[in-house]
Amino acid sequence: MEFSAIWLTLKLAGLSTLLLMLVAIPVSWWLSRWNSRFKAVVQACVALPLVLPPTVLGFYLLLAFAPDSLIGELWLSITGERLAFTFEALVFGSVIYSFPFAVQPLYAGFAQLHPHYLHTAKMLNLPWHVRLQRVVLPAVRPSLLIAAGLSFAHTVGEFGVVLMIGGNIPGETRVVSIALFDQVESLNYGSAHQLAAVLLVFSLFLLIGLYWLQGRRRLKWNVM
């Protein structure tokens, strides 16, 4: 059993999910309150990783992370290390790759939050952080959990992007999906079975959890 690959995958998914939540919450909030004819363009850009082959995204990221590109050079000057084929590159790639999975549930949650709640909270002199903590976030709690769960699951199942920008370096970029591919190539079907089963069971239970959460309406939202 490749425990280091499993641990690396969990670390990557956990860190990516955390970063995604930090970025996706303000972006989704802004998108849900923004009306412009350019909104469709922004929405399309956010949704692009849903439809692009992961190898296309991985290819462009590989170019962007190269030491002679702007991002790669900037990273090199700050950290003193190259970006491509590192764990950090995988985190960057995962955040972009899973971005729509975080934004879309949150966007739906925020869009459903009726402006009356916000007007009322403001009228009753509640400061902005109290409005966020007591009114907005509880209202979108199911969406938050679904966004985090989907981001995590999607990052665990990532293959094409990792292959392009991470390669197969044990302890650095060798995540479960890459290890599985490697074992199959080496005709180690026993090890491949183990890894495949771990991914299958994990993903299934995560999705069951998410659907259960979605079906069980935790909060009733009546405008009256």
């Binding site: 009726h114 009356h116 709640y117 007007h119 009322t120 909270a121 009228m123 009753l124 002199n125 509640l126 109290v130 007591r134 009114v135 509880p138 209202a139 909060l219 009733k220 939202w221 009546n222 405008v223 009256m224």
Partner: peptide, 19 residues
Amino acid sequence: SAQTPLFPALSVAGNLELV
């Protein structure tokens, strides 16, 4: 009015105490 809903994440006491 009907346009000033109570905050559903809080109980009645929670709504009143927060404000």
